[in-house]
Each structure stands twice: as C-alpha cells, then as structure tokens.
Amino acid sequence: MDIAGSVALVTGSNRGIGRRFVQQLLKRGAAKVYATARRPELVDIEGVEVLPLDITDQASVAAAAAAASDVTLLVNNAGITTQGSLLTDDLTDVRREMDTHFWGNLGMVRSFAPVIERNGGGAIVNVLSALSWFAYPGSGGYAAAKAAEWNMTNAVRLELTGRGISVQGLHLGAADTDMMAGYEGPKVDPAEVARLSLDGVERGAAEVVVDDWSAGVKASLAEAPERFYAQFA
C-alpha cells in the first residue's frame, strides 16, 4: 500500500518507536494519523488526532475503533517490559506481559481488521522483537509474550489473506528508547525502525528484520539451541 494518503493509527505514540512512527507517517504524506496512548496528554506532536487508548481494556479498544473508523493502517506498537523469574517471582508481571503483547494486540487486530477492510484494505504492523525467538535470564515473561504475539501475527496474516490486508511482523533488538535506557549494548535508532517498517508496508513485506542481531538470532533457530545459549552461561 502507499503510505501517502493513508489513514494510520499508532498505539503507544507518546514516546520511543511509536513517536517515530507518527513522525515518519506525517513525513510520508499520510492523510491522517491517530496518535494514541494511555495518557494522551503526553502526545505532543503537531498535526495528529490524539486518542486515549489502553490496549488491555477492550472497551477502550472498541471506543478507539469507533472513533477512528477511517483507518487503513494500524501500527501495534504499545508495549511493556518487566524483569523476573518465571519460576520463583510473582506471576502478576508475566500476566501483564501476556495481556499487553498477546491479548491486547490480538484485540486491536480483531477490532480494526473489519475497519480496514471496509475502507478498501490496507495493512497492520505488529512491533515484535528478537526476543520472539530467544530468551535471556530475566526476560522470560517478555520473551514468552513476544513469541506468542509472533505466531499470532502469522496466524492472523493467514486469516486476512484475500481480504486486502497485509500483516507485517517487525523484529528488532535494542532500540535507543526510554524502555532500554539501562541497556549498555548496541542500540538501533527508533526512527530507522519506523522507516524500515514503513518501507516494508509499501512493498507488502510479511516480515521486517531491522538489525544484524535479530537476523542472527533468527538464523540460529536452525541450529542446536545449546550452541546459541552457550553465550548466556
């Protein structure tokens, strides 16, 4: 699809990758951009229509779908990250991860796919992670939720085939955002993440792998897991 002239909705657009998606969409000539956030007062980008949205609250999702009935491009970016052990820590945070990344984004797809189809078709982007394909100590809840979201992305892509809606899975390692402020390794520019993803939307790509780290993790899936996980020993 063409970004120019599209009507886009971006979740979690008050900061980080979501904010860069909004800026890129405006730069590329989107006719309208709905910038959504749980705290809409934090969205400070000119030229957008701001909507409140909590993707873990189905009533909030339904209200957004009703208000943004002209959407042709949905960017599911909103997310959280928690740390802890799947075996010994309280499971509250793990459930929050799954409620956000799997159930929340599935609810967005279910609510907006009919909207996009009524408007003549378009695209959905699910912002995933290299952690869709691996885990490191302390990342279990996030990694499990992203893995679930990854295969959910594959499943809804199959279901939307023939309905004029492409579905992109977007994978990256660490981005230079507030969420990754404590990470000391290489970080990708979030503006570059948004640019590459929207390039992929325009060519109908089912998957966009942003950085070498994510590409390497994906390639490692064909090998014995002991070889990959030796680096975390």
Rank of each mutant, 00 (worst) to 15 (best):
L9T: 09
L128I: 11
A144D: 01
D44G: 01
A155T: 08
G47F: 05
S13A: 15
A63D: 13
V10M: 03
A8C: 08
E202A: 13
D54A: 12
T72L: 04
E117Y: 11
D199H: 11
V75Y: 00
M108P: 05
K146I: 06
V193T: 00
T88W: 07
S132I: 04
S214L: 01
I165F: 01
A78L: 02
E207A: 15
S220G: 00
R38F: 05
G169I: 10
D57N: 15
Y229C: 04
D70C: 06
L131R: 09
R39T: 15
R38P: 01
A113I: 14
I124A: 04
V22N: 11
N14L: 01
G107Y: 09
N119I: 13
I45K: 07
S129P: 03
A155L: 08
V210I: 15
D44M: 11
L73C: 02
E226K: 13
L26R: 12
L86A: 13
R95E: 11
V50Y: 06
Q24M: 05
V43Q: 08
S220Y: 06
P190S: 04
V10L: 02
R38D: 02
R20Y: 00
P52W: 13
F112C: 14
A181N: 11
T82N: 13
W133Q: 13
V33K: 08
D93S: 14
F228D: 01
D178Q: 13
S132F: 01
A135R: 09
V33Q: 03
G162A: 05
A130V: 07
V109N: 03
D99F: 06
D89F: 12
R157T: 00
G107R: 07
N126T: 10
D2H: 07
T36R: 10
L160C: 02
A113S: 15
L158A: 12
S166I: 09
P190M: 04
T82A: 14
P186C: 02
G162R: 06
P137H: 03
A175M: 04
R118V: 12
R195P: 00
P190V: 00
A147M: 05
A135L: 11
V33Y: 06
P114F: 09
A59N: 14
K218W: 08
I17T: 07
R96C: 03
M152T: 03
V188M: 05
T153E: 00
L160G: 01
A144Q: 05
P186I: 07
V210Q: 04
E149T: 09
Y136G: 13
P186K: 08
